[in-house]
Amino acid sequence: MKDFSKELSFKTSRSSGAGGQNVNKVETAVTVLWKVEESVFFNEDEKFLIQNKLQNRINADGFLFLTVSESRTQLMNKNKAIEKILEIVDKALFIPKKRQATKPSKAQKQKRLDTKKKLSEKKENRKFKY
Rank of each mutant, 00 (worst) to 15 (best):
V40C: 05
S105N: 06
K80E: 09
T73P: 03
N22M: 03
N77A: 02
T31H: 12
V36G: 11
F10E: 08
A18Y: 01
V23K: 02
L54K: 12
K97E: 07
S16I: 01
N79H: 06
L75H: 14
Q74N: 05
K118G: 00
E7K: 14
A107K: 09
V36E: 14
D61V: 05
I85G: 03
N43V: 05
F48P: 00
L119Y: 07
T28A: 09
N56P: 09
D61W: 14
T28G: 06
D61Q: 14
F128I: 04
W34T: 05
F128M: 04
F63D: 13
E37D: 14
G20L: 08
K53R: 15
R99P: 00
R14W: 02
K80D: 04
M1A: 10
N43G: 08
Q100Y: 13
E70N: 15
Q51V: 03
G17F: 00
D90Q: 12
R126G: 00
R126A: 06
M76Q: 15
L66V: 08
D61P: 04
Q55C: 13
L54S: 07
V68R: 03
E46P: 02
N52K: 14
P104I: 04
S39M: 06
L66D: 08
W34H: 09
R126H: 06
A92R: 12
K117F: 02
V23P: 00
S15E: 01
I58K: 15
I58R: 15
S15D: 02
I58Q: 11
R72W: 03
K78R: 15
E124T: 10
R99S: 04
G62E: 09
N77R: 01
L93G: 00
L119R: 09
K47Q: 10
P96H: 08
R99G: 01
F10A: 01
N59C: 10
K11M: 08
E83F: 12
Q108A: 11
F4N: 06
K78N: 07
K129P: 02
S105M: 07
G62K: 13
L49I: 11
Q108I: 00
T73Y: 12
L33W: 12
P96G: 07
N59M: 08
K25P: 00
N59V: 08
K25N: 04
L119I: 07
V68T: 04
E37F: 11
Q108C: 01
L86K: 15
L64P: 10
L64T: 10
L86Y: 07
K118M: 06
V40T: 11
I82V: 14
V40P: 04
P104L: 00
V40M: 06
S16G: 08
S71L: 05
N22I: 03
W34L: 12
P104F: 01
K2N: 10
I85K: 10
K53E: 10
F65Q: 14
A107R: 12
K116W: 00
N52P: 03
D114E: 09
L64A: 11
V89Q: 06
